[in-house]
């Protein structure tokens, strides 16, 4: 029963018994885990605000053989998102969406350092005061890409022609993007600016994108929708916070 120490991001927590919490967290060293935090709901608990979603913590925990849940012994906050979430209701819902993607998409105990770094980059941008929309899109894009089901944004999936002005995709079929000549009659469309952004996101870091691309709710809504559909199609069940994000 060794004591482990890891860099972790809190994804979600649930109440357990009178005063405990079960917390789902993503560690850099051991992947996604779940653990029990004893007494975490008491006012004088040492965990304090460390168990709020998307808090970056330095965590100590024990794992026992044949047990799914580890026991979290200590959590020291490295960076909290509570202050950022308190800025605006829309940001708060957007952060929940980011946490939900990670919670549902990442397999247990699978280490993916790129996902961990992605979350840190997105959270840093939001802490620096960026509106939620572009960092959220960046998070969606890279989650879909790292999970391996990102469509090709450069060439038509049917004829191989370069996608320039507009592309079509059919959410139900799950096929790739197609040029106007090849697409299905009932296709949804991705505009030229969204296509260009999707192509740019593959090679441009988020801080640089924030200086060059529009960061508003209306901008790139088609791309956001496409990536969300890909996520839900892969997960095979809805992401709860998406509906609230659209209404926020």
């Amino acid at each position: 029963m060794p004591l482990r120490e890891a860099d972790a991001i809190i994804l979600r927590s649930y109440p357990l018994k009178e005063s405990d919490k079960i917390v789902s967290f993503y560690t850099r060293e051991y992947g996604k885990l779940r653990g029990v935090c004893r007494g975490a709901r008491r006012p004088k608990s040492g965990f304090g605000g460390a168990l709020e979603p998307l808090t970056h913590v330095r965590m100590q925990f024990f794992e026992r053989p044949n047990r799914d849940l580890c026991t979290v012994d200590r959590c020291d906050v490295v960076a909290s998102m509570l202050e950022t979430a308190s800025r605006d209701y829309t940001i708060s819902v957007g952060l929940s969406y980011i946490a939900e993607i990670a919670e549902k998409l990442l397999p247990e105990r699978e280490v993916q350092d790129a996902v961990f770094r992605l979350m840190l980059v997105v959270m840093a941008a939001l802490r620096d005061g960026a509106p939620i929309w572009l960092p959220l899109l960046y998070d969606q894009y890279w989650n879909v890409r790292l999970a391996g089901f990102l469509p090709d944004f450069s060439y038509c999936a049917a004829c191989g022609a370069a996608l320039v002005e507009m592309a079509g995709y059919h959410p139900a079929t799950g096929e790739g993007l197609m040029c106007p000549d090849c697409q299905h009659p009932a296709s949804s469309h991705l505009g030229a600016t969204s296509l260009r952004l999707a192509q740019a996101m593959a090679r441009t870091p988020l801080p640089q994108l924030l200086t060059s691309a529009e960061n508003a709710r209306e901008a790139f809504a088609d791309l956001r929708g496409l990536l969300h559909e890909r996520l839900e199609a892969h997960l095979e069940h809805p992401l709860q916070s998406w509906r609230l994000l659209l209404q926020a």
């Binding site: 004088k44 040492g46 304090g48």
Partner: peptide, 17 residues
């Protein structure tokens, strides 16, 4: 910080608030 506790044990988020 809750009454009766000590500042030494307060986490960063609570202390900020």
């Amino acid at each position: 910080i809750p009454v009766g506790s000590e500042i030494e044990y307060a986490d960063e988020v609570t202390m900020l608030k």
